[in-house]
Amino acid sequence: VSVELPAPSSWKKLFYPNKVGSVKKTEVVFVAPTGEEISNRKQLEQYLKSHPGNPAIAEFDWTTSG
């Protein structure tokens, strides 16, 4: 189950709350306009370098507050 949070234009930000008793931590995933899922800052940096014209990296908020 995921919750969609505010994201930069043409992107989606999905929040996957951890299940009770789960060892997996809460996860935030950005979905690029191409449909590619980005789950960490390093991936995001690589994606933005190879896909010019996207929002600046500073516009991506990895917190769950939206």
Rank of each mutant, 00 (worst) to 15 (best):
V1M: 12
V1N: 11
S2F: 15
S2P: 15
S2R: 13
V3T: 07
V3S: 07
V3A: 06
V3N: 07
E4V: 09
E4W: 08
E4F: 09
P6H: 08
P6G: 07
A7Q: 04
A7E: 03
A7V: 05
P8Y: 04
P8T: 04
P8F: 04
S9D: 15
S10G: 15
K12G: 06
K13Y: 02
K13S: 02
K13N: 02
L14A: 03
F15C: 11
F15G: 04
Y16E: 03
Y16M: 07
Y16F: 13
P17G: 07
P17C: 15
P17D: 08
P17Q: 11
N18S: 13
N18D: 10
K19A: 14
V20S: 11
V20Y: 10
V20E: 11
G21L: 07
G21H: 09
G21F: 03
G21K: 08
G21S: 09
S22Q: 11
S22R: 10
V23H: 15
V23F: 11
K24V: 12
K24H: 15
K24L: 14
K25F: 12
K25H: 14
K25E: 13
T26I: 13
T26D: 14
T26R: 11
E27Q: 14
E27C: 15
V28Q: 01
V28E: 01
V29Y: 08
V29A: 06
V29D: 01
F30V: 01
V31G: 01
V31S: 02
A32D: 00
A32T: 07
A32H: 01
P33A: 02
P33E: 02
P33S: 03
T34W: 02
T34A: 02
T34E: 03
G35Q: 02
E37G: 06
E37Y: 15
E37Q: 13
I38Q: 00
I38N: 00
S39G: 09
S39V: 13
N40Y: 04
R41V: 13
K42T: 11
K42L: 12
L44Q: 00
L44E: 00
L44M: 06
E45F: 09
Y47R: 00
Y47I: 01
Y47E: 00
Y47H: 02
Y47N: 00
Y47S: 00
Y47P: 00
Y47M: 00
Y47W: 04
L48T: 00
L48N: 01
L48G: 00
K49R: 12
K49G: 09
S50R: 09
S50M: 12
S50A: 11
P52R: 04
P52G: 05
P52N: 04
P52E: 06
G53T: 04
G53P: 03
N54F: 03
N54V: 04
P55L: 05
P55W: 10
P55M: 03
A56C: 08
A56E: 11
A56D: 15
I57E: 08
I57S: 07
I57Q: 07
I57V: 08
I57F: 13
A58F: 10
A58T: 14
A58E: 15
E59K: 05
E59I: 04
E59V: 05
F60T: 01
D61L: 05
W62N: 01
W62D: 01
W62A: 01
W62P: 01
W62M: 02
T63M: 06
T63Y: 07
T63R: 08
T64E: 07
S65V: 11
S65E: 12
S65R: 09
S65K: 11
G66C: 12
G66L: 11
G66S: 12
G66T: 12
